[in-house]
Design a protein around this nucleic acid. Structure first.
Length: 300
DNA sequence: GAAATACCCTGTGGGC
DNA sequence: TGCCCACAGGGTATTT
């Protein structure tokens, strides 16, 4: 599922393709994703130029020349695909597009899970189509004033970015002090750290040698330091490798991401620990309705 | 107030 | 082959 590295990869992938383009048209194929889309989204954004693409936690922020920012969350299964040469049908008003995905030209109908379509015009006159596809519809979009985007209800309670300086041993120590909930649960708490999800939480804890069942408040300073360092390491590595957390996650070029090959524990129940000196079988447990994978021998 | 659980959703895969 | 069901998980609402 898209966690920080995947969202970062999407941002990098779409930024060069859409910044500077003009929003010729916007099509909402349904009124809602997880929550209702702004009813006047089309009216507010149409004919604006996209000025910036950035990320906060798992949220994609698309800045526009009208002074507003489109906030996008990919949820569980959200994808953004950019296709070349999109153009509308004069007959139906539906968008047609040349697409490798549909393996034909002029395919008149988008996939049933293509919920939001942005038709873009580049400076050179080159047209393209941005498609937001989301089978499970756990994703979300909202449109807010750019100067107050950090105050949006989705962003205001987010913890620091784990790859920035604010996230350090002192910060994490203070935040988990006295906490009885498990460290696994704490790691995926977005108000504590922004961007870590279920998959990377398992990977980070394995690398740090900390058992997911440990009470967060029981961690010693040295362990917290370890956790901070490995959080940075795992996420940085994943971004470098193109970001992907599940087999069905694709980057904006439609190519499979490949970080999953490097998973040390996630989805590896009963397989040998990748620590060569260990080779114990990886265990799977359920914590707060989420799977956790860990090595009983390496993680304490 | 903190922590745990239920819920939303749909594609996938295992079992029969 | 086809049907049923459990499972996946991000974020919020509800319950403990």
């Amino acid at each position: 599922m898209p966690e920080l590295p995947e969202v970062e990869t999407v941002c990098i992938g779409i930024s060069s393709k859409i910044v500077g383009t003009k929003l010729l048209d916007i099509k909402l194929n349904r009124p809602d994703l997880r929550w209702p889309l702004p009813v006047d989204l089309v009216k507010r954004l149409k004919y604006s130029v996209i000025t910036k693409v950035s990320r906060r936690g798992k949220y994609i922020l698309v800045g526009a020349s009208n002074g507003e920012t489109l906030i996008i969350h990919l949820g569980m299964s959200g994808r953004i695909v950019i296709e070349k040469d999109g153009f509308p049908s004069e007959e139906t008003g539906a968008f047609y597009h040349n697409t490798e995905r549909h393996n034909t030209t002029l395919t008149p109908v988008f996939s049933k899970h293509d919920h939001v379509i942005l038709r873009l015009l580049g400076k050179s006159g080159f047209k393209s189509t941005l498609i937001y596809n989301d089978a499970r519809r756990f994703g979300a979009m909202d449109l807010v004033k750019s100067d107050s985007v950090e105050m949006h209800k989705w962003l205001i309670n987010l913890g620091p970015e784990p790859l920035e300086d604010e996230f350090d041993v002192n910060y994490l120590s203070k935040k988990i002090q006295g906490k009885t909930k498990t460290i696994k649960s704490a790691m995926i708490d977005q108000s504590l750290i922004a961007g870590i999800g279920n998959i990377y939480a398992s990977e980070i804890l394995w690398r740090a040698g900390i058992a997911p069942l440990r009470a967060a408040g029981s961690l010693k300073k040295k362990e917290i330091k370890n956790l901070v360092n490995h959080t940075r390491g795992v996420l940085s590595d994943a971004i470098l490798k193109g970001g992907s957390s599940l087999k069905d996650f694709r980057n904006t070029s439609g190519e499979l991401g490949y970080f999953q090959i490097y998973f040390n524990v996630y989805d590896r129940e009963n397989k040998p620990c990748k620590n060569d000196k260990c080779r114990n079988l990886i265990k799977k447990i359920n914590q707060n309705g989420r799977s956790s994978f860990f090595c009983n021998n390496c993680q304490h």
